[in-house]
Design a protein around this nucleic acid. Sequence first.
DNA 1: CTGAGTGCAAAAGGTTTGCAAAACT
DNA 2: AGTTTTGCAAACCTTTTGCACTCAG
Lengths: 153, 153
Amino acid sequence: MENRVERIKKQLHSASYKLTPQREATVRVLLENEEDHLSAEDVYLLVKEKSPEIGLATVYRTLELLTELKIVDKINFGDGVSRYDLRKEGAAHFHHHLVCIECGAVSEILEDLLKDVEQKVEQDWNFEIKYHRLIFHGICENCKENEKIIDEE
Amino acid sequence: MENRVERIKKQLHSASYKLTPQREATVRVLLENEEDHLSAEDVYLLVKEKSPEIGLATVYRTLELLTELKIVDKINFGDGVSRYDLRKEGAAHFHHHLVCIECGAVSEILEDLLKDVEQKVEQDWNFEIKYHRLIFHGICENCKENEKIIDEE
DNA sequence: CTGAGTGCAAAAGGTTTGCAAAACT
DNA sequence: AGTTTTGCAAACCTTTTGCACTCAG
């Protein structure tokens, strides 16, 4: 945890930005809720619990900055809000997501499933891929279970 | 063209909606600009050329309706606007997109590249996939050409 | 002192909604 | 008549921006 904050601090410094208290609070919220795909508002509310004087605009500015430095990825699941996702250490490729259309749960696939597909696209379409977004929408394990139970009643 | 309008008319009717003149004008714009990934505003302006009395809200409502009926897909390339894409006839799976980060051009991959990947995800994560979104961001053929020319100067 | 960073409030931009009028059945 | 659809304007929500203030070097 601490060393991840340290690492981000260095990343900011090497781009001549400072890790201000507000930025640090924001980063910590992201680290503490790594699994949660928080929206800017979510982050704001969480940061506010510990640093009530922070402003929403600052959170937005920090998230934008972190996105620029590729410390977080800005994602969109189609619900009209941007969400922010910490990059895994040293991950060359953005991970994939499974979004449950029943309960809204989001889980992650860290494994890169697209090696072969990317190679094909680069060749066949003569397109140089920089990054990709892959989101599966469907029904998660839990909701499948629940449906079974309902059916049996 | 005409038969595609007819088909959509039937789809609406079977869900007890009417193909009003405004809806038809909207559908025609989508058909005429099938390659273009239009935003609601884009559609509105194009519809307005032929039916100046139409309102923006009607276009939004029509696009929402068409999305519900799965006649179009609502997509988001991360530029803060929703775009609408006619489904290909009988396409079981939503097609993939290549978005150029230089010039913004969007092209489509109709071929389904994810058969194997989906099978793996369904098995390994016990997740029932309903649909997916796959977007590659990178540099398109043209922009790669242009870069070469610039380098050579 | 100077520039970077902040908080607040206002503005912006895309989308949705309330409502009365219009269209259709 | 009754239901659906429409156009307009207002409301809404997320995100961005302007500006004066603060803080660190």
